[in-house]
Design a protein around this nucleic acid. Structure first.
Lengths: 186, 186
DNA sequence: GTCTATAGAAGGATAGAC
DNA sequence: GTCTATCCTTCTATAGAC
């Protein structure tokens, strides 16, 4: 046999690309830069990801995977749909407050490539649609109407865009909105 | 005799660039494309705008000029700070509902060029800071606290990002928020 | 020797700037 | 129009592990 292929090469490349793409934007980062940070040759990069679009799609898929895991974990300890809704917003707020937060990766991609319908754009749109659907589901579960769902989605969108100092305002507001739906017993 | 310079050349170029930049993003549009749409020569473009960054800055300055004019017009007929606040949000909502709306030009630029501090970035940041300051001012004028200002800013940010179908929700919500501050006389 | 890795040049297109 | 630089992508050359 010949030289054994390194096992984690794909992950190494993808991790390097993800960091660069998120920090500087997909358009601003060249494939040569990815190769340099990943510490591999161009040949290997193109063997794992046949194009920059496929690499960008894998980057967004990775971010989605991390976010899904993080949200699932956050919702695990919430009792009912009300506290799940609050936990969901709190999870986003925690992300916004992270030191190297640079906006929502999916919204950023759609802003960088407006009107595009390639694979990464579809990944991004799917994430946004699914998240919105989950908000709708949770609101419906706790007896809220579409107005409440629209309002929470408005807050979520503002939370992603706004400064980190606004994060707590969003969390408290959503808590208040869904909390007022369940009048305290007695 | 030398050829007389056309009077509206700068505006023609800037209008063409503005349309392209807003529709496709600044990074995606090349100077050649601007020249093609403007119908002028490249040398003329570089005589008016010595670099792409300066053209982008002029584009954002033009957008700001239009927005300032539009907001001033919207606030003209509003009686007190409460209705001015509502009028401000309604003006943004009208923009969001326009058929070719593609997001906030300033936020889009900052997303396309993260971490940059060139002239267009400064124009964009100044607009956002000024708008936020105006919201703060109006909220303070009608006796609201910083929490109300933060909440309205959250809605405004969500309004810019969200789908046009959310626009009315934002307008109604802000109307309700500032309206509840002025209990009806009698 | 054979296979896979990296490094880097080459191709072709397109960018910004003059 | 031209010039230079850089983009993504492909390919060649070479070194290293089996």
């Amino acid at each position: 046999m010949a030289r054994t292929p390194a096992p984690g090469t794909r992950d190494t490349i993808l991790t390097a690309a993800a960091g660069l793409f998120y920090e500087h934007g997909v358009r601003a980062v060249g494939m040569a830069q990815v190769v340099e940070v990943a510490g591999c040759g161009k040949n290997l990069l193109y063997r794992h990801f046949p194009s920059k679009a496929s690499l960008a799609a894998a980057y967004l898929a990775l971010v989605r995977q991390e976010r899904d895991r993080s949200c699932t974990e956050a919702l695990r300890w919430a009792a009912g749909p009300e506290s799940q809704l609050t936990a969901l917003v709190l999870e986003i707020a925690d992300m916004v407050r992270r030191p190297r937060y640079r906006g929502c990766a999916f919204r950023n991609y759609l802003t960088e490539f407006p009107g595009e319908d390639d694979e990464p754009a579809r990944v991004a749109k799917a994430y946004l649609a699914d998240t919105r659907a989950e908000v709708d589901r949770l609101v419906a579960e706790c007896g809220g109407d579409t107005l409440l769902a629209d309002r929470i989605w408005l807050i979520v969108n503002g939370l992603y865009a706004g400064p980190p100092s606004q994060a707590q305002v969003a969390v408290d507001w959503v808590t208040e909105l869904v909390g007022s739906r369940t009048p305290p017993p007695d």
